[in-house]
Structures are given as C-alpha cells and as structure tokens.
Design a binder for these strands. Sequence first.
DNA 1: CGACTGGTTGAGTGGTCTCAAGTCCTGTGG
DNA 2: CCACAGGACTTGAGACCACTCAACCAGTCG
Lengths: 237, 237
Amino acid sequence: MIKKITNIYCEDCKSLKKSVYGDLNSEELNILNFNKSCNFYKKGQTIYFEGNTPEGLFCIREGKVKIYKTGNEGKEQIIRLVKNGDIIGYRALIAGESYNATAETLEDSKICFIRKNAIFDLLKKNEKFSFRLIKLLSHDLGEVEQRMVHLAQKPVRERLAETLLILRETYGMDKDNNSLLNVSLSREDLANIAGTATETVIRLLAEFKNENIISTKARKIEILDVNKLIETGNLSY
Amino acid sequence: MIKKITNIYCEDCKSLKKSVYGDLNSEELNILNFNKSCNFYKKGQTIYFEGNTPEGLFCIREGKVKIYKTGNEGKEQIIRLVKNGDIIGYRALIAGESYNATAETLEDSKICFIRKNAIFDLLKKNEKFSFRLIKLLSHDLGEVEQRMVHLAQKPVRERLAETLLILRETYGMDKDNNSLLNVSLSREDLANIAGTATETVIRLLAEFKNENIISTKARKIEILDVNKLIETGNLSY
DNA sequence: CGACTGGTTGAGTGGTCTCAAGTCCTGTGG
DNA sequence: CCACAGGACTTGAGACCACTCAACCAGTCG
C-alpha cells in the first residue's frame, strides 16, 4: 500500500542543502518537482528489489532505509543505511545496470521518486551536480571498501561494536536521551550489518552489557561508554 | 628506483579507446600529454601508499597492479586488481580524501601519472568524460559491494574459486595456453584476495587439484574445468 | 654452501555457526 | 479485557571451519 503524497516541493526539504541537490537553482529544482512523485511507505515496505530496472532515483524525505543484498543461502547482508536527504538507487541508474540490492524501510518514511530523464538532464547541464554525484560515489566507494576489509579480517565482536558506532554516526542519538541510539533494529538486522548470526549478536550484546558498555531495553540501545565501544571495535575514530 | 620514460603519448596507448579517456578529442588528449609523466616500475614497487595525498591519478600503460588495504593486524586485503588501461587513485583524488589503500605493481609496469589540475579541467569541460568517470565509479562500487557480501557470507573454498575466476576475468589467459592464467601471484596474494590465510589457500588449491579443477606449476595456475570452478564458487556467471 | 624466501604439511584450538528448546513480547480477535 | 498465536528474542550444546603455530621442504641467490 503506497500512499501518494501531493504538493511536496524540494525547496521545502530540510535536507536540501546537504544533499546532492544542494547546488541547484530554483529553475533546476523545478525540473525535479515536475519529474517526481512522493509517497508514504510503511515500515518494512520494499522500495525496490534486487534485479529490478531503475527508472529513476529515490530520495529520502523523511525516514530510515536499509539497503541489502541477498546472499546465496538467502541471508541478507545490509550494505548501507540511509537517512533523511540521502538518495538511493543512484548507483544502478547511473551505471546503467539493474539494482544489485534491495531497499526496504526501517520505519514509516516519506520517499520521493525522481524520474531518470530529469537526472540525466541535470547531469548534462549542471557540472556542479555531476561533481557532487561523483564525490558522493567516490565517498561511498571508500566506505564500502573499508567495510569490506573489516568484514574480511575483524572478529565478530569488533564488527558488532563498529556496527553500533555506525548506527550512532548515521542516525545520531535520541533528542531526549543523547546516549540512546535513535534507531531501533531487530537483532537480525544488527546481525545482517555486522555480518554474523542473530544468536551471536545476542550473546555479544549481553557481553557488552556485562562490561557496562551498553544497556538495552528491547530494541532500544543505550551507549553508556563510547570510548570503550571504540576500543572494543579496535577503531581509531 | 623509478625510471622516467619520455615521449610517451596517450594517442599511442593501446587501451585508449576502452579507457575513461576514450571520448577525448586530440586537443584534450594533449592536455593529458602535457600534464603527465610516465615511469617504469619494477615488480613489487609501491606506486602510492595508504594515507598519502593524491596529486593526480595514475594510468596503467602496461602491467599489473594490486590495490590493497592494510588491516589492523597488518594483514593485507586486496580490494582491486588493475590491468592495462585502468586508472588508479581516482577515488581518493575525486573524493578529496587521502588514499585509503596502497597500490603496488605485481610485475614490471609502465605507469603514467596525470596531474590533478588536468583531470579537474577535463571534468569541468567535458561532460562525457565526467559521465564516463561516474559510470566507472558506480560500476566499481557495485563490484565492491558484491565482493563484500561474498566475503561476509561465503566459505573460503567458494571464495577461492571465485578469486581464480576474477583473475581469469581481469587478466585473461596465456596466449600460448588458453587455460593458463595470465598472471602469477604468490599464495599469500591469493589469500589476500580471497580473505583467508596462506595455508588455507595452499590446502584448498591442493583440493582443487585432486578434483581435477586446476593444476599448478609453481605460480602458474591452469584452469582445467571452468564450469566445475564456477560450481565450486557457487556462482552463476 | 649457507641463508633466505616462499611453499607445504600437520596438529591443535577456538571462534562462530547451527540446531533446538524455551521464554518473552506484541498484536489480534473473541 | 483476556487468551492465544506468532514472531522476536534468548540460552545451551555440539560441531566444524578455518586460523595459528611450528616444523619442514624446495628453490634461489649471493
């Protein structure tokens, strides 16, 4: 059930300036406005599937999304977490390939779709936009490379610590309690980020609790000692 | 010992058309010619180090290069293998970051260095060049994402099979014996691609030999049965 | 002819996974 | 409002993959 939302303008988007569209003038923004449709997605809804052909790109107006690939045994591996103002599906669109991952909302979200011709138009006309996209891509590439090495070499315990720090980095903390992660994921999702089994996540979270690094109440995770967590992750942030 | 080579022109490069420079006109090619220097690198030489600041990008005129990151325990993880006509170091240059990996020759190579101002000039002037770079980046991103999932989820045996297929894909086969991989790597390098220990590579290669999938003479690996290798890698090429 | 590097083999161990059982939530319908 | 179903979470036991360590071998180079 995708509910259409009308009268949403990019100019009003809180994340506009920080997004790849930050350099567009009002005329160019109108190209976006005319070539988009905005929709409401419920938690757990799929935005696009691995294998689908991209017809444009999606822009998170508000919400949280996970991007994951499905491995041979059907196990998810989350490759990226996405927040307000981020765009998704651009890699496949630009590469001229089909989606190599699935995008699914982690909570109720407002997500805009921008038709591909508008994007390619902008790429041709506005070299600043191109450049921002290039920067975005190359930055993302760097992140994935880093994660790849960690998945290959670090023990699960360190990867889980890193996962919690990634969540902190990406989604920040709760407004009322700034040691509380501002995102609630299932244990399985955590496992699929860290690249491990659900049971292992549970056991390790229990360890972290024993060591007073975190505390949990259901899916709400509170980080009691960031430095210890960084240390546990064997990281130098 | 880097030996300078003079009088090398991009126009004469065999890989020009297939490279990101494929769309440049002769005037633009001259920008490259005027802003580059070409050097001879011996096998095992480092082209740039993780952490260095990029001053331009490198272009493989002839040779083979590995790009690797160094993990916490000092273990290499090879993230990319590079061949004639490929460019390296572009991610960091464009992202405005320092190199996040080290590049080292796998055999004697001729490598050109192009100063960054020339690249940024081209990016501004020639949207076809920008677009090719964008495509390159987004393609590479897709590859790394795929590799990440496999590193996270597949058993070593499958990853090693995949490694051999990547070598085949990247460097092709020997001219005289088209089942012989056209690259010779140490067992350790193989391990650092597959994300495992050297000893494990040796044991698995022995298994593959027993199963008549490959045969080896020192570093020369012959693929006897590609389909079996694909099957072993649990892949659908 | 040592010394050195890269390759190979073996033994032992431990980190993680899988499987299975059980508990705790949460939402739903009576 | 309660009972129940189903999913998420937790805990335990056992197995096994892959790593580490250590010894040994095979070329190669001064």
